[in-house]
Design a protein around this nucleic acid. Sequence first.
DNA 1: AGATCTACCTGGTTGC
DNA 2: TGCAACCAGGTAGATC
Length: 278
Amino acid sequence: MPELPEVETVARTLAPDVAGKKLLSVFVCNAKSWQDELSADSISAVQPKILKVGRKGKLLLVYVEPFFLGGLQVLGLAFHLKMTGRLFYYDFPKEYEKHTRIVLNLENGQRVFFDDARKFGYCRFFTDRSAENWEFWKKLAKDPLEMAPEEFVLALQGKSAGIKSLLLQQDIVSGIGNIYADEALFRAKILPDRKAGTLSEQELFLLHQSLVSVLEESIAFCGSSIKDYRTAKGDVGSFQNKFNVYGREGQNCFLCRSPLQKKTVAGRTTVFCPCCQK
DNA sequence: AGATCTACCTGGTTGC
DNA sequence: TGCAACCAGGTAGATC
């Protein structure tokens, strides 16, 4: 399940192979995976050079030489991997596979595949106007790594909603999904269903610090591969071996040895330590 | 405002 | 073996 560390890793592993190359065309294998009223075909007419690969929240951004289209300045392609989306780079014209949804054709026959078994993910343009006319982009908050601790505290303190629910809302803080929400709450010793308003300023600072540390450590391990996630080179990440709680229900807490519990919080499977987390 | 439910999808696992 | 039920989870949208 690609969250911030996984998307960041895909961006970092994809960039060296595509930056500086011409994007000749974008082929859409599955119509629903292209979610833009502007046609992907317009790429063929421009064939812009790819400038860099970046990330905004869980969006992966392929920046190209800007060009005008429909009164907008296109800055690049944005991919949302959702649950099973993957991006792979091939240095030869590889045949499409069963789950290939979008193909980027680069110069010299090189290709980037957007594979997505469950078809939840999508690709579209991002433009100079995305902050105004793309609802998801417009509301997307900063991620914990780019947020000052004080900003994070301000965004959460006094809210009556549950803390885990808020961590998952991309318009409050971006990049966090089910895995890193549970892991950060464990590190901060906070129960997932605590109302945010009951958290002290100190607890919120600690939670921010926990998010930063768990995200940075995961990036250092190339993310977590539970099932589907791979880097752009097809490698697995290894942070799944460092989980304290995610997927460990019934097993003993590494700190206090009592069994970890599972329950549904904010509609998601949630694992926590009823002893360490308050 | 917030919580809960459903929809979007398919592959893998479990249970009969 | 065959097959149905269920689960995984990011986001949008509807409803209470």
